[in-house]
Nucleic acid binder design. Structure first.
Length: 329
DNA sequence: ACTTCCTTCCGCCATT
DNA sequence: TTAATGGCGGAAGGAA
């Protein structure tokens, strides 16, 4: 539980733009953190764009963005976002790396999208940490910064103080993940609905998945996922799901991985913890009941999964995020 | 925390 | 011949 959901001061997100940055990911960050979503959550984030020094910064598409803050903006950042940029451009200036290290040392959360991971790595912030980047650049990252523990197959990696994400669309997943960590599952879901993107994709999900989740019920597989989501409280095993889809268990798990990027059990556990989070936020049910409603055998069996996924205990989570049932539209 | 039991998952190969 | 599917077995890991 890092940043303050309940403090009056707004959480400051600084997006650092270096020469050759990529505008798409900047757009994602702007949409999530820059748009005023105070309708959901009263003190929404404050987004600040920063560059090495104030002035125009050239994007990799050739147009400039006029940035009014320099590196000193990093000093009041709660979260620093590193935008992608071509690694072939070489390492950013030393002043940038020092500013990043200082921000991190001060306790700011560092996050990167795509090749933004190279900038974090250059600053030494990924040494001996798990991290990811776009699969096209995995080899280069490994070769240039051997101390980084690269996980090439995931959408994003959350190391607590340092987060890295894969290619373009994973930026959305990472941003929603941060919103979920800061303001809870209900807020993140509401935002996802508003952005018309799939709300929950586990960071551990593979990068190569094509179809975004339950999307449409026009095929047996999608229908089964949607059905499972509505019946998380019941015991669901691979055999049951496979039956519903009309597949053999073997074929079902094969299709599951291809479509979804995870295994059935992992997916179920992830969705169940997600449901538990919402229940903790929006109800006063005891943890034991929340666990059962989310499909766990009891609080005891939920706890380790919750802890691993959310990085805090169910009780602590409720303390941080409990809101009235009216809460979020 | 440790052990025991059970499910899951995935490579490999057969079958359609 | 290839693509889709099913079954087997053992290692991994979740449940109790």
């Amino acid at each position: 539980m890092t940043s303050g959901a309940n403090q009056a001061r707004r959480h400051v997100v600084v997006a650092l733009l270096l020469d050759g940055f990529s505008p798409f990911e900047l757009g994602v960050v702007c949409e999530v953190f820059g748009t005023d979503h105070s309708a959901f959550i009263p003190p929404w984030y404050q987004l600040v764009l920063a560059a090495v020094e104030p002035g125009p910064v050239r994007s990799d598409l050739g147009f400039d963005i006029d940035v009014s803050h320099g590196l000193d903006a990093l000093r009041r950042a709660d979260t620093v976002f590193l935008m992608p940029r071509q690694p072939s451009q070489g390492e950013p200036p030393q002043a940038v790396l020092e500013a990043l290290r200082a921000a991190h040392a001060r306790g700011a959360r560092m996050a990167s999208v795509c090749t933004g991971a190279f900038t974090l790595a250059a600053a030494g912030l990924l040494d001996d940490r798990r991290a990811t980047t776009h699969w096209l650049h995995v080899d280069a990252l490994r070769a240039t910064y051997p101390k980084v523990v690269i996980d090439p197959d995931v959408l994003y990696v959350d190391e607590g103080d340092v987060l890295t994400s894969a290619g373009t669309a994973a930026a959305i997943d990472l941003c929603l993940h941060l919103v979920r960590a800061d303001f809870g599952a209900a807020a993140a879901n509401a935002l996802a609905r508003r952005m018309v993107v799939p709300p929950h994709r586990d960071g551990g999900q593979a990068q190569f998945i094509a179809a975004p989740e339950p999307a449409c019920d026009d095929d047996a597989f999608g229908a089964v996922l949607a059905w499972a989501l509505r019946h998380l409280d019941q015991p669901l095993d691979v055999g049951t799901l496979a039956d519903r889809a009309g597949f053999s268990p073997r074929h079902f798990s094969r299709v599951f991985r291809a479509r979804t990027g995870t295994s059935p059990l992992r997916w179920l556990l992830y969705q169940r913890v997600l449901l538990a989070r919402e229940l903790l936020e929006t109800t006063d049910d005891p943890v034991e009941k929340v666990a059962r409603t989310a499909g766990f055998a009891g609080a005891t069996s939920m706890r380790p999964h919750f802890q691993r996924q959310v990085r805090c205990s169910p009780a602590a989570y409720r303390r941080a995020f409990r809101r009235g049932p009216s809460g979020v539209a």
